[in-house]
Design a protein around this nucleic acid. Structure first.
Lengths: 209, 209
DNA sequence: AAATATCTGTTGCATGTGCAACAAATATAA
DNA sequence: TTATATTTGTTGCACATGCAACAGATATTT
């Protein structure tokens, strides 16, 4: 969700001033901020893609999420009052972002004008929506068998498209990552399910029976 | 987190009026709202405990979370603009709640007075904090082996208490539920880890080595 | 078109873990 | 205390799935 949704050009420019927006460009692979960095600004992506990740205890990289144009990142930490980042943000391609001073919005300028109100509504909606998405992913990851995870995943994707035959916007590898399974195990189980006539698929087009 | 944190008695009463607060009491086991119910209000628990759950595709009950005094529930849906509940809320014990009309806060009375501002800050902080918690649980559930989940869980608990020897506020069954594992498998793996001298524990008191 | 890289499917193997059934330990009630 | 209920640990078994290694398919580059 776009935090500037429903705010016109003019109001938006006023807002950007108030938020002390700073435009920055990062090259592919460049680190925007790292774990432990001070975090007072929120990133708003104008162009490109950013990956949020962290290293776990054993040094393995854990991908938290990928974020694209018109989306924000880091807002959960800032809004929760966490001032050091617990993840790192890296540009996956050449990326333009705006750094926004969220504290200004949240604790200074609330009572000024209608588009401020709109912005706050949008921010709340953004975080709340993310909340629901996270909740759903937890539900999926709570399934104990790979097959259950796959079915849960496919049902959700089907619901999104509202079609009997639907496409999923993930490669096998991405899908495996999302449901936290081994890629080859995923391929195998999809095969099994096709043989057992539970699902049918070709490439990224699926059908549930 | 309490959405009324830092708001004094008097302001709070004014707010409750504005939020069209309605006090309700539910008996143990009583359903507060069900999946699919219209959702315009957010619950604020004065006393008791509420369980949020839903039934999955196969009819198994999935526990989303338990919520206690001074906490809210349903706010993510309302704030995200989802008007039908995707979970059901049940009183685990006799419970008193306030039903608050959140739409009033979010889209009507923003620009009035300082404690409104505070309330909104609190709401944002509440949702954002929940966000981070959910994110952490996903990280845990993304671990592929039970042992990794256990270690992740214990490290997190240790960090909370900041002690070498720490207690966890979960029964074995609750712990198993949280890390989405079989209870007996959890017991077994804890035993293994103790034998391998990776951890030590007695009841709910643990030590990592 | 040829060469190369990336993605996807297949298979053997080892083992981790859910499940069930029961025993032991602990907590609660009578 | 004794009786009962609840929680926790133990074990055998079956099997699901991670892992590794490879082959085939598809996409990209030269």
């Amino acid at each position: 969700m776009d935090i500037f949704y429903g705010i016109n050009e003019q109001d938006r420019n006023a807002l950007l001033g108030c938020l002390q927006a700073v435009k920055k460009t990062y090259l592919k692979g460049e680190v925007i901020f790292d774990v432990g960095d001070d975090l007072t600004s929120v990133g708003y992506i104008l162009e490109g893609e950013v990956q949020l990740s962290k290293d776990d205890y054993d040094g393995n990289k854990v991908i938290v999420s990928n974020v694209g144009p018109n989306e924000t990142f880091g807002e959960a930490f800032v809004c929760a009052g966490v001032d050091k980042s617990e993840v790192s943000a890296t540009a996956l391609v050449e990326t333009q972002i705006l750094l926004l001073n969220f504290h200004r919005i949240l604790s200074v300028c609330v009572n000024t004008c209608p588009f401020h109100k709109k912005l706050i509504e949008n921010i709340i909606k953004t975080i709340a929506t993310k909340n629901i998405m996270l909740q759903k992913r937890i539900e999926l990851l709570s399934k104990k068998t790979l097959r259950e995870r796959i079915l849960h995943f496919l049902r959700t994707e089907k619901k999104k498209t509202k079609k009997e035959i639907f496409e999923i916007p993930y490669s096998r590898e991405q899908m495996a990552l999302y449901i936290s399974a081994d890629r080859s195990a995923l391929s195998r189980e999809l095969s099994n399910m096709k043989n057992e006539n539970i699902i049918d698929y070709d490439k990224n087009t699926f059908r549930l029976k």
